[in-house]
Amino acid sequence: MIVIPAIDIMDGKAVRLKKGKKDTAVVYSENPLEIVDYFNDIGIDRIHIVDLDAAFSGGRKNNRELIRKLASRAKAFVEVGGGVRSLLDVEELLCCYVNKVVVGTMPVKNPGEFEKVAERFSDRIIAGVDVENGFVKISGWEENPHIDYIAFLLKMRDMGINEAIITDIKKDGMLEGIDFEFYKDIALKTDLEIIISGGVKDIADIKKAKKIEKYGIKGIIIGKAFYEKTISLEEALEVAG
């Protein structure tokens, strides 16, 4: 199981939100490049980067130049999401050190465009599925199109996407621990490689995630727990194997 620390970017800074709400942003670093250096030093294999400005603006505002610098600096595999709305967005990200792109809103808002993306880059796309009360939320979690999350994931699978990041919105940024039955159920119903996102509190969550790895859990994203120092990434790496 892969331990995947997150860097959420807003106005060029590393921040964390609570339940995805923009007005809850707390700045943890004025220079996210230093965070990448630390990840390099401890041997992180994969980094999750979110462009919050792009997510909230629908791509009109972004931190793409900084993300290119972060990705080029990283020794790890880099995945990037937030505000990816077109084939051009995907191409621009994949051209410059980014290994995979996380897409969530485009399949709902512009399915025709997403079909082009899936045809060309299915092996480099991760379905980003943010769930609240059984439904997918999009556009930086500001819209609820009333789409069942399992149905959405099955559609992604049928389009050739084999990996999905599932964010449990009610847990995100709350340091309350993870709902593991929720993730186990998704993995069993969809036959996708599932990455857990939202709610990691401490090393106990990594141990529990490891126990359900056999059902199709590929990795776990660690965000606020790292920045608030309620978890050690070094210990998480050891536990995850």
Rank of each mutant, 00 (worst) to 15 (best):
E235G: 12
I47D: 06
F152C: 11
L237Q: 13
I150F: 00
D11P: 12
L153T: 07
D23T: 10
R46H: 07
I166S: 01
D89Y: 08
E142C: 08
A55E: 12
S57Q: 03
R73P: 11
G83C: 06
V50R: 04
P145E: 07
E142Q: 15
D41N: 04
E213A: 01
I126M: 05
I150V: 12
F226T: 11
I49G: 08
L87E: 14
I217L: 02
F180D: 01
A204S: 06
V36A: 11
K69N: 15
A14N: 04
H48A: 09
K22F: 13
N62Q: 12
Y227M: 06
S57N: 04
I206G: 01
A71D: 11
A209Q: 05
R46E: 08
F77I: 06
K211H: 07
L17C: 13
T24S: 14
D148Q: 07
L88T: 15
F182H: 09
A151H: 12
G173S: 09
G219I: 00
A54H: 10
E143G: 06
K170M: 09
V78S: 08
A71C: 14
H146L: 13
N40C: 05
M1N: 04
I217P: 04
P111S: 13
E143Y: 04
L175W: 03
E92V: 15
D202C: 01
K75W: 09
G58H: 06
I44M: 03
D185M: 14
A236L: 03
D158A: 12
N162T: 14
N63D: 14
I44A: 05
E228K: 10
E235M: 13
R68W: 07
L87D: 12
A240L: 06
V36N: 12
E228R: 10
K210M: 02
N31M: 03
A54K: 11
G173Q: 09
E235P: 13
V50C: 07
Y183D: 01
L94F: 07
I138V: 14
L66R: 11
F135E: 12
M10D: 13
